[in-house]
């Protein structure tokens, strides 16, 4: 925002710390209400305003403190933000960042828990990224703002306590491409966002049991870097995919389909997919504990495969 005056932020609750998990602290004082616009509760209207501002030379960041409320904004996000440039023959770029927070757990139930990355990866014209560490959280957010397309940047509040040394200066990290976090030979394990944290724990446990896991952080959901996954599967012959969203029709289904086609003769075992059961999130903590996959779920799946 310091670097480029055309950047401004807009969204329901962005100047309210408990809405946005303290991530906007100090910005209102630095940039004033003119560039930190905390709006009426009008998600579709606000998304449309961001689209119109982007179409006319601004670089807005529109934030949804809870991803669940994005359903209201689907028309402007899909029909307008994502489709405009293609439908108008490449004549109307929409340099727009949409920041969506996954805020779940704590018995918040179905409408305060959703992780909708798979819904949005289905939409052509949208880039969808999900950082798993502080470095990418900063670098990919800045890259999204610089990008001349609508970029949906999804951050999971279960990652907000993560710590890592990050350069204080301005830098970007690429919006495309998966990252191999650990090299291994027995099983390829693919995860994104918060599930990378659980997968790292699984990796460490499995290492103690002499199971060598190759861990891949997807980083970008759309475009999806299936080439990096395929390279790994050609080596290991085994693939476990873990996603923080619903299983049916989701990221894991897409990856499994691509890998089944591209690495058919390399696969020693059927692909295993882990994700949420096809149910809205329950409230009771006893139900939450079986609803969300975690490192133990991952460990069991990998051991089952070996």
């Amino acid at each position: 925002m310091e670097k480029d005056d055309s950047v401004f932020q807009i969204g329901v609750g962005i100047n309210t710390p408990w809405f946005v998990g303290q991530t906007m602290n100090g910005l209102l004082d630095r940039f004033s209400e003119e560039r930190m616009i905390d709006t009426p509760v009008s998600e579709n209207g606000v998304m449309g305003i961001a689209v119109g501002a982007a179409a006319t030379g601004s670089r807005p960041i529109v934030t949804f403190p809870r991803m669940d409320f994005m359903h209201y904004a689907m028309d402007q996000l899909v029909n307008h933000a994502a489709f405009f440039n293609y439908t108008l023959g490449g004549n109307l770029p929409i340099p727009l960042t949409i920041r969506a927070m996954i805020n779940r757990g704590g018995e918040q139930a179905s409408q305060h828990s959703q992780a909708l990355q798979s819904v949005f990866m289905h939409i052509p014209g949208l880039k969808v990224v999900m950082p798993s560490d502080p470095y990418d959280a900063k670098g990919m957010l800045l890259a999204a703002i610089e990008d001349n397309n609508p970029v949906l940047f999804i951050d999971d509040r279960w990652l907000y306590a993560e710590e890592e040394e990050v350069p204080a200066d301005y830098f970007t990290s690429p919006l495309e491409g998966a990252k191999r976090l650990e090299e291994g030979k027995d099983v390829s394990l693919v995860a994104s966002s918060y599930m990378v944290k659980e997968a790292k724990e699984a990796y460490a446990e499995l290492k103690k049991k002499n199971i060598s896991v190759e861990l891949i952080d997807l980083r970008s959901i759309s475009p999806l870097d299936t080439e990096t996954i395929a390279l790994s599967v050609r080596k290991t012959g085994r693939l476990v995919i873990v996603d923080g969203g619903w299983k049916t029709g989701g990221i894991s289904a897409e990856i499994a389909a691509v890998i089944s086609a591209d690495c058919h003769s390399d696969l020693k075992k059927p692909v295993i997919r882990l994700g949420l059961p096809d149910l809205p999130a329950p409230a009771a903590k006893t139900l939450e504990s079986v609803y969300y996959p975690n490192s133990s779920t991952v460990i069991s799946a990998v051991q089952h495969m070996i």
């Binding site: 579709n44 209207g45 606000v46 998304m47 449309g48 305003i49 961001a50 689209v51 119109g52 501002a53 982007a54 179409a55 006319t56 030379g57 601004s58 807005p60 028309d75 402007q76 029909n79 307008h80 405009f84 108008l88 023959g89 004549n91 109307l92």
Partner: peptide, 28 residues
């Protein structure tokens, strides 16, 4: 349809679709 050179930014087939978009242009 579009012709940015004369300020005609966009039309949309979704009823009311360009109304908030026009508000965003007014913000710019």
């Amino acid at each position: 349809i579009t012709d940015k050179s004369v300020g005609f930014i966009a039309s949309s087939a979704i009823v009311a679709g360009t109304i908030p978009v026009a508000v965003g242009a007014a913000l710019t």
